[in-house]
Each structure stands twice: as structure tokens, then as C-alpha cells.
Design a protein around this nucleic acid. Sequence first.
RNA 1: GCGCUCGUAGCUCAGUUGGAUAGAGCACCUGCCUUCUAAGCAGGUUGUCGCGCGUUCGAUUCGCGCCGGGCGCACCA
Length: 586
Amino acid sequence: MLPHKQIESKLQAAVREIIPDADVSAILVRPCDPKFGDYQSNALMSLAKARKLNPRQLATDVLAKLDLANICEKVEIAGAGFLNFRLKNSLLVQTLEAAARGEHLFFSKAATPKTIVVDFSSPNVAKPMHVGHIRSTGIGDALQRTLRLLGHRIISDNHIGDWGTQFGKLLLGWKQILNRAELERDAIAELERLYKIINAECDANPARLEEAKSELVKLQAGDAENISIWKEMIRLSQVQFDTIYSRLGVKFDHALGESFYNPWLGEVVNDLLAKNIARESEGAVGVFSDGSVPPKEDAFLVNRDGEWIADPALVRKSDGGFNYTTTDLATIDYRLKTWLPDEIVYVVDDRQSGHFKKLFLIFGRWKKDEAKKTKLIHVGFGKIMGDDGKPFKTRSGDTVKLGELLDEAVERAYQTVCEKSADLPEAQRREIARVIGLGAVKYADLLPNRQSDYIFSWDKMLALQGNTAPYLVYAYARIKSIFRKSEGGNLKPEIKLAAAEELTLAKHLLNFGITLEAVAEEYRPNYLCNYLFELAEKFSSFYENCPVLKAEDQATKNSRLALCDLTARVLKRGLETLGIETVEQM
RNA sequence: GCGCUCGUAGCUCAGUUGGAUAGAGCACCUGCCUUCUAAGCAGGUUGUCGCGCGUUCGAUUCGCGCCGGGCGCACCA
């Protein structure tokens, strides 16, 4: 058991002795400012407050029952009732040596593994993946990797947009203005061209819109020609998706698109109607307020000029077509029946928070018992803005295509590799540029808190200095360079810590697991970014001040080599968890 | 109008049950490559945490009000 878990567990036991009925699940310890110690707990102050006790007295009482022999130095009560813990050097060394022997890597698997469906990326058929997709794809992938690492059973599912009204227009375009040669050359660009032209025509001309609708109706009715064209569009899009995902190293267990759920949509609506959850209104079918909460908190009401009016979620349009709420309900139902998950996590733009709020409420009304067993979670994220504060576009007003962004990143990285490492063979420089360029883009997107909008900047996203992926990979490559020069020999799992930089680095290694748990708990990969950046910083400082291969004696050299190796392993594993590769040399 | 969300250093952003003297990167200045990769290290400068009130031993964090930005508000997803 990792030291902080031991402290926590002993602390909880001590609290239980003083206050037998206390809920000790919130009694936690956290890494803290080194001037106070290695770990801190402020939990006793909250507990004292809730029970109207004197916090310092409570801390004193708990401390009297707290036996941390062999774990910590003398525990101190500070301030209003903080407990400050300083690890015994012997335990720190033991923990590192166990890691050096391969017994752990500073994290432990979840005590109760959960089954979690992670729904992310969800690109649309016949449209190019653009810069916005980096968010859902990168965050979703980092989360599935983190949860898997912690021992959960993950089912990742790409809910591809392969159905919907846009296909009416696409079919019309395909039949009337398709350029076969262009389709061969760049299928997605050609499909996008078709859509833009027909869409503009439909806006201007109602007759054109009717034509498109009629193509859609034929598709929905199973018309053989339209089905065949539709399938071809999906196939062409899938080629694009596969190319991008392969470059990004993103894998899904399933890619059940919206169309997969078509067979059940009618049943869903009928069932909702039969159970009086939905009702007809103006020819459509929708789910309305059930009056169970005050209007202000009611997701199905909206205030217009002082009056509360219905804001339903439609599940069937007046023309008989279905809405995405219907598809999403069928999807939840399918996932629950198929995988029995404890959670379903949706990594989707925050602008859809209203949709998910309603969706989850409707599902709760529709399938009460199943809904109780499964947590439905919307992990939202902010928009990517241009430097004018508006949604990010290229100078010509187009969205930035993801493939082109990745190309640019790799190209910029290549320029730098050629400057810094001109002596490496070209193939190796290309490979380094690929890893660094893609890593820079992913890391720049994962670093900000996912909820905030951020301003896109080529220079920032492709930056190779500062708090970036290249900095982290560079730290890794420097360690690997040491080992290339260490002339073999087996690593000895014997650690001794003397220099301040060694201690700082060693203690930071121990916090890898806490960080992973925080990422999983709040679905925030940026915690891991910051942890790894700090690790690289602490390593760099160690590297400057503590010679490894030229250490003063053999024992120190062995110990430092072991520290280097552990740092490299955590960096590699951590970056891998963010979906970022490493190189041995750069 | 109503709801959601955001407002932290010159710029871009962090800030983990409310917690100790609010941090990082970029930019700017000063040092450091005849010792393991200078994509680096060491140090320096920068704040009414939008404003006000409240809860609390303690508020960037919670509540209320105001100001300012963004998003959403029935047959697109």
C-alpha cells in the first residue's frame, strides 16, 4: 500500500475511535507545500465544524490515537487544525525500491472496478473532421486510457453521425452534381462541396428543399438506390476516420453509429406514449414537464417574458421522423441491456448540456429501475475560439481541418528536429517529428481545464518550449541517453536519498496514483498534464545538480540510475495515458 | 426575457473535500554549455482573483445582488 494510503487508513481509524459514527470517507490526505511536510490533511477542521467541536482539540485527540510508527516522523498540528505529515525516509526508500523491483508504479488498481461506457469523438459522415474534434477525441481517449489503467472495464463507443436530415441533401447532390473524379481524389471534400451547394439552394428555394426531403423519405423507407449511395458515403467517411484515428493512436471497442438504432426508434416513442411520458403536441411527440419540481428548476420549462412555457424534448417530428433524443434514448437502452455498465460517460461539447440534462431525466422516467443502477454523466468541454473571441475559423472563414492541423504540427516539429539534431538520420528525424508534433497538439488541448473555452493559436498548439509535450518527451529522452551511456549492467534496486533534488523528485513520483485517481474522479486529464510537467521540472533540476554516471561513489550512481529509470517509467506511462508517444532520442 | 457558463499577472491559462504567503507557460531582464542532450537549468519583474454584500476560525472556491463576455431556449444534431 502506498504511504499516503497508509496514513489515510490509520487516520481514519483514529478518527473512528474518537467519533465512532463519523463518516471517514472524506478524511483524506493530500500532497502539500514542502515547507509544511509531505502530506497534509485539513479534514479534521471540516469534521470539527460539522460537529461544533474545537478543531485543534479534535486534532489533538485524534493524534493521541494515531500510530504512524515506521510511516511518518512526528505529526504536527498547525494553523487552525491542519495535520502535517512528513514521511520517514526509510518508507520513502522502501516504496521506491519496491517500484524499482517492478512491484508497482506508484498507483494501485481501483478497489471496486466499474464497467464504464465511454462515448466520444462522434464525427459526422460526409464531413471533414475539424479542429473541434480534437477536444472530444483527445479528452475521451485520455479518459478511457486512465480508467483502463486503474483497472476499470471500459467499453469505448464511437457514436458516429451516420443518419439524419443532412442525407436528403447529400443524396440529391450525389445524384445531380457529383464529380466522380473529385470523389476519387478527395471524397470528403467532394461530399462537403455537394452539401454546401445543395444546402444553399434549399435555403433559397423551397422546391429544392422538398426534393431533398423526398430523397430523405426514400432513404428512410429503404429505397435500394438511396441505401446503396448512403452506405457508400459511410464507407468513404470511414476511410477518413480510420486514417485520422490511426495517426492519433485512438481505438474504439465499438463504432455503433446513429443508424444502428433505427429499428428501435418507433418502439421507443410508442413506449413513451403508452407510459404517458410523452404526448402529442402540434403534430409532433414530445416529453413535457411533469411538474415535479419548481418551474425554475424544471428542464422542460422556459421563461418567456415572465411566463413559464413548455420547452419539451421532441422524440418524433410532425412528419414522422425521429429526433436525436429518440436515438440517444434507444442508445442508452441498448448499452444498458448489452453491457450492464455502472456508468456511461459522454464526452461532448458543453453546448449540448441542456440536451443531456433532458435526456437523462427522460431516461430516468422511462426506465426507473435501470436508471438507478447506472450513472449517466456528461463530460462537457468548451469551445475553441479564434483570437477575435469568436469560434475559430481560418482566414477564409472555413473550419480548420484536423488532418491539416496535424500535418502542420509535424512539419513544424520537423524543422526544429533538423535544427537541433541535424546529425540524426532523416528517417529518425521524421519519426521524432511525428511523435513530437502530434504530442504537442494533443497536449495543448488537454492542458487547459476542459470546461473553459480556449483561444486557438498555432504557436501555442504547436509550441515546442515550456509546458508542452516536447518538454516532457525531452526529459524522457535525456534519461534514455544516460542509459545508452551507462554501459549496461543491471539496475540495482537500492536507493539512497541525500540531495534535496533527489528527495523532491522521489516524493513527486509517489503522487502519480493520487493524480490518476483525481483524473478519473473528475474526468479531468489536465491534472495529469500538470503532474507530468512538474515531474519533468523536478527531474530537470535533479539532472542539472546531481551527476548520475559521474556520481561520487558507486552506491550513489546506482541509486540515481534507479531514480532515473523510475522517472522514465512514470513519464512514459503518464504520457501514454494521455495518448502521447515517446522517443528514445531527440 | 429565462436558464447555463465564464471573468485570476501584459498575453494564454492552472488553481484537486472552502485552507496555510494565489501559481505556470509565453513575453521581458541577468547568469550558466572543455562533466550524463541548452527543446535545458538558476535567479529577477508582474495581481483591487470583475464589483459589492453575506456565511465561516478561514472565501479565487459556497450563497445573494450587480456589471461584462459566451452559449442555449419545439420539429438540426
